[in-house]
Computed example of a mutant assay.
Amino acid sequence: MQIVFMNQMSRNDGASDENSAQVWIGEEEGMWRLGWRDIEPDGHAQDDDWYEGSSWQELLCVYRHRLTMKLSEGYRPVIEGIFHEPEDSKGKNHAALKLQCYSELYGSEELYTELCAWRRRKAAAGRKAPYFIASNRVLRLISAFTPQTEEELLQLPGIGSNKAAEHGADWIEMTSKLERITAFPLDWVFRQLKEEEFLSWLYKQKEHKYKQELENYRMSRTMLMGIAEGLTLDQLSQNTGMSRRDLVEHLEGLEKEGYDTELLIRMELESMPDTEQSAIWKAFEELGDTFLKPVMQRVYGQEPAAEGGMEQRYERLRLIRIRFRRQHFEKRDAV
């Protein structure tokens, strides 16, 4: 096997000798391999194979995900700048990220739980999704820094004047009952939060992102292979465990990336009358393709749908919208 990439890693946990490791990529007869090697102080090595296969793209997805796991554990590259440095750690969002990091590591769980309960009540009363009221990030910040005036609230990233005016009184009512040991402004956070602590937290955030990226890549590959084999949405659902709705949404993403999904769309719309398809197409031309509800109302009006029929109608609208957008982009590229 030919090693095409390797970097030395090290971690000092403060309780023992420095831990050493290597991350490497190799190639042999068209197959890619990726692995991690832990090197004991006595020189013995323990290997962990991360990937073996023919897809360079999949290897990169696995590499990013598994490497961020190691970086979040405290490993650092001996040779800097070769791979995967934290892009945001010194950027314009540096201060906001540090405040977020501190709030997740040192916030009050008791206050956070109380804030989440408040959000559930607000969401239920307003018939809104909880995240429309306030994000977990905002509630974490409040739980850590306990702002007790509107001016202090506005110093927290993610809280603007509208949010403060809408919910600030409720938040301050909860925080004002607590004894606060920290103060505003929050410059002290940047001195108190250790850089290694912040970097490990930052890599932990990226770990989730790259895990999703890997899962998305593998799902796309499974779907494309299924489409090439002539599988239906029901068959793909059985193979992947995903609902038909999620599969159609993923199908839209594949089209945006330039993949051909027409074979599956044609099979799914085969039983749909041409007149109904034409009416939907015309509605997209007249109303645009951003929102589906106006198109649904234009085509079907108040016509009741059978049990499960409304979901089927929306599914078919999405499938026809894929065709509509594809033709729109083809015409635009031809100009």
Rank of each mutant, 00 (worst) to 15 (best):
Asp13Gln: 12
Tyr203Val: 05
Ala306Asn: 01
Leu233Gly: 04
Thr175Asp: 10
Arg244Ser: 11
Leu178Arg: 08
Glu87Thr: 13
Asn19Cys: 08
Ser72Cys: 03
Glu276Leu: 15
Pro77Asp: 12
Met242Ser: 05
Gln327Arg: 15
Gln148Ser: 10
Glu150Gln: 08
Leu317Arg: 07
Arg325Pro: 05
Ala125Met: 13
Arg218Val: 00
Pro130Met: 06
Gln192Ile: 12
Gln212Glu: 14
Lys282Ile: 07
Ala124Tyr: 02
Val23Phe: 09
Arg37Pro: 00
Gly226Trp: 00
Gln312Phe: 02
Met272Phe: 15
Leu97Pro: 13
Gln192Tyr: 13
Glu58Ser: 01
Phe83Val: 08
Asn93Gly: 08
Leu236Phe: 09
Met267Glu: 05
Ile280Ser: 03
Gly35Ala: 09
Asp234Met: 08
Gln155Leu: 04
Gln100Arg: 11
Gly91Met: 07
Trp36Gln: 02
Ser220Thr: 06
Met9Ile: 10
Ala95Tyr: 11
Ser143Gly: 03
Gly168Trp: 01
Glu311Gly: 11
Ala129Pro: 07
Phe190Gly: 00
Phe329Gln: 15
Ser54Val: 10
Ile265Lys: 04
Arg323Phe: 04
Met69Ser: 12
Asn162Met: 12
Arg137Trp: 02
Arg180Cys: 11
Asn12Met: 07
Ala21Asn: 06
Lys90Gly: 13
Trp32Ala: 01
Asp187Tyr: 02
Asp246Asn: 15
Phe284Val: 13
Ser89Tyr: 10
Gln235Cys: 01
Trp281Asp: 05
Val138Glu: 01
Ser103Val: 06
Gly226Val: 04
Leu287Val: 06
Glu215Asp: 15
Leu115Met: 06
Leu115Phe: 06
Leu287Glu: 10
Gly309Met: 13
Leu292Val: 07
Glu330Lys: 12
Ala45Gly: 12
Ala129Trp: 11
Tyr106Glu: 05
Trp201Gln: 09
Trp281Lys: 05
Ile142Met: 05
His208Met: 13
Pro41Asn: 11
Met242Ala: 04
Arg332Val: 14
Trp201Thr: 08
Ile39Tyr: 01
Trp171Gly: 00
Ser143Val: 00
Arg120His: 04
Thr240Glu: 03
Ile142Gln: 02
Val138Ser: 03
Ile3Phe: 10
Thr232Pro: 10
Leu263Tyr: 09
Leu231Glu: 02
Glu18Val: 15
Tyr51Gln: 08
Glu315Gly: 07
Thr222Pro: 01
Gln235Val: 00
Gly288Met: 03
Ala117Met: 15
Tyr75Phe: 15
Trp118Cys: 14
Leu154Thr: 12
Gln327Asp: 14
Leu269Gln: 03
His167Ile: 06
Phe190Ser: 04
Asp49Thr: 11
Arg76Ile: 12
Glu114Phe: 02
Arg332His: 15
Glu330Phe: 10
Glu109Asn: 09
